[in-house]
C-alpha cells in the first residue's frame, strides 16, 4: 500500500470539509473493497476519510411504509435486523450472503453501493425495491444512482447518508455465488410492491452493472409463479464473460435464479 493519511470524521459536515482539503481523498466505509484495492496498489488516495464512526450514518428505522438504513450500517446488522427480516426478508437474505462473516462485520451498505461493483449484491435490491438513495446533497432514485460498471451518479465529495426502501408485499433474492469469492455470478432480486407493481433486477451478470428484465416483470405481473419466468431468457449480448463463466452461462443462470427467487418469495 502506498502512503496515505487517515482521518476519522465525526460528522458528515466534518467529512465533507476533510475531503475539500485533501489532494486526492477517498471516503472509507468498511474498507472491505477499498483496502484490498489499495494493498494491490490499484488505488492510492492521498487521504482516507473514515465515515464508520459517524453516529448519524448508523441505524435501521421504519416509518411511513419505508425502512431507512443508515449508510454505515454493516451487512451483519442488516442481516440480523428484526425489522428487515420481517419487512424486507429478501434484503436480509442478500446481506447475510455477502462475503463471509468477518467481511459482513465491516462492510457497509453505503460503501457497497458507492463502489457499484458489477458483481455486488446490493444494487439489485435497491433497483428492484425502488429504493431512494439519500446523500448530503440530494435524493436519488436507485435507477438514477447506478450509472455503469463501478460508476454512480455520486460527485467526488458527495456522501451517501442513507437508503430508504419502500416496504414491498413480497421480496426475495437468489444468487449463484462464485465459489471462491462469493461475489454473484448472477443474482436476481424480485419484488412485488405494495401497489402490486413487479420489478426484477439482476446483478453479477451485466457488463454495465445492475439491470431490469422487463419481460419477466410483465410475466410475473399477471402470474406470480416460478413457471412464469421459466421460459424467459435474457440476451447474452451485454453480459459479462470471463474465466468464471461465459455470457451464455450467465444468461442461463439469470433465469434459474429468477425462478428460485420467485419461489422463495412465495
Amino acid at each position: 500500500m502506498y502512503e496515505t493519511t487517515y482521518h476519522r470524521a465525526g460528522s458528515v459536515a466534518d467529512a465533507a470539509s476533510m475531503m475539500a482539503s485533501a489532494e486526492d481523498g477517498k471516503y472509507l466505509g468498511g474498507g472491505q473493497t477499498l483496502l484490498p484495492t489499495m494493498k494491490q496498489r490499484l488505488a492510492a488516495p492521498t487521504d482516507l476519510i473514515d465515515l464508520a464512526k459517524i453516529v448519524d450514518l448508523h441505524g435501521i428505522s421504519e416509518a411511513g411504509g419505508a425502512v431507512v438504513i443508515g449508510a454505515a450500517t454493516t451487512h451483519a446488522e442488516v442481516a440480523s435486523s428484526a425489522v428487515i427480516n420481517s419487512k424486507l426478508p429478501g434484503l436480509a437474505t442478500l446481506a447475510g450472503g455477502i462475503g463471509d462473516p468477518a467481511v459482513r462485520h465491516k462492510g457497509t451498505i453505503g460503501g457497497s453501493i458507492a463502489n457499484n461493483d458489477p458483481a455486488a449484491d446490493y444494487p439489485s435490491a435497491l433497483v428492484a425495491l425502488g429504493a431512494t438513495v439519500k446523500t448530503n446533497k440530494r435524493e436519488l432514485a436507485a435507477e438514477d444512482f447506478f450509472t455503469g460498471m463501478f460508476e454512480t451518479a455520486l460527485e467526488d465529495d458527495e456522501i451517501v447518508t442513507s437508503v430508504s426502501f419502500p416496504v414491498p408485499a413480497k421480496s426475495a433474492y437468489s444468487k449463484y455465488p462464485n465459489p471462491a469469492s462469493r461475489y454473484a455470478m448472477a443474482g436476481v432480486f424480485v419484488a412485488k410492491g405494495a401497489d402490486d407493481s413487479v420489478k426484477v433486477a439482476v446483478t453479477g451478470a451485466g457488463q454495465d452493472g445492475v439491470f431490469r428484465v422487463g419481460e419477466m416483470e410483465s410475466a410475473l405481473s399477471s402470474n406470480w409463479s416460478p413457471e412464469a419466468v421459466a421460459g424467459i431468457s435474457v440476451s447474452s449480448d451485454n453480459l459479462l464473460s470471463d474465466i468464471h463463466g461465459s455470457a451464455a452461462y450467465r444468461a442461463n443462470l439469470v433465469t434459474v435464479m429468477a425462478k428460485r427467487a420467485v419461489a422463495a418469495a412465495g
Binding site: 476519522r8 483496502l35 468477518a102
Partner: peptide, 15 residues
C-alpha cells in the same frame, strides 16, 4: 466483540 480480518483493516481504524 466482532470477528474481522485484521489484514483488511488499518490499525488507525481500531484506534
Amino acid at each position: 466483540g466482532k470477528a474481522v480480518k485484521s489484514c483488511t483493516m488499518l490499525a488507525a481504524q481500531a484506534d
